[in-house]
Design a protein around this nucleic acid. Structure first.
Lengths: 113, 113
DNA sequence: ACAATACTTAAGCACTTACTTGACTATGGG
DNA sequence: CCCATAGTCAAGTAAGTGCTTAAGTATTGT
């Protein structure tokens, strides 16, 4: 995935309203009004949040008649998850190597400079 | 984890400069100047990014003498990872149940309304 | 003591974000 | 045909973000 898209995904998820929408959509598809009903803001504001989510690739929607149905697109979620996992495990592996060094158990050779 | 902290973590990671800092720190601790060197901006700007990262709990730092050493704190990364994973798998389980319904293989009973 | 290093703090500025309201365009039921 | 429903579009605004420069404070090497 391009850095650019990860950018959009994380930005989209950084907002609590948009996370609430994602949480709702994780339980199944919903129309714009259904998504808006529990939220303390105008429907127009919700539509704007949906545009951000759609631009990030986290959500896609199709309009049939006058109702637009939105669903979650797990790929974007997955990409962000993978990035986070990569950083965290890289760091934790580093801590492990440090632990090995301190216990004299270095299987790779070469000390830190 | 409180919604509030997830908020800060995702907001912190939504910026490419801050993600670059996290990627660097995943390979091991670094001083402020070391973090700033490859980045195309002033040191003061980097310090501001570090403040955001530290407020989110993703990074902590200790100052010895005149040099502040920053390291990654994996807990925040983990919390975000878990949230993403939860949403994604909830959605995918939903898709599975839908698949089961379509193949007549519903082991839970109760059709969608 | 002096100067270089490694930050720190504050003020300011362009740009973006998260809303609002108001006007508008389908679509569908009675 | 009429009206409610469902959503769209366009301004406008207050607050927040990501930088900058400039001035300041400790700490360390000579």
């Amino acid at each position: 995935m391009l850095n650019h898209q990860l950018d959009r995904v994380l930005h989209a998820l950084a907002d609590p309203t948009r996370r609430a929408i994602v949480e709702r959509l994780a339980r199944g598809p919903a129309s714009v009004s259904e998504l808006a009903r529990p939220l303390p803001m105008s429907l127009a504001a919700v539509v704007q949040h949906l545009q951000v989510l759609e631009a990030s690739g986290l959500v896609n929607s199709t309009k049939v008649g006058r109702v637009r149905t939105c669903r979650l697109e797990p790929a974007g979620l997955r990409a962000a998850e993978d990035w986070l996992h990569g950083q965290r495990t890289a760091w934790e592996r580093g801590l492990d190597r440090l632990g090995d060094l301190l216990t004299g158990d270095d299987h790779q050779g070469g000390e830190p400079r």
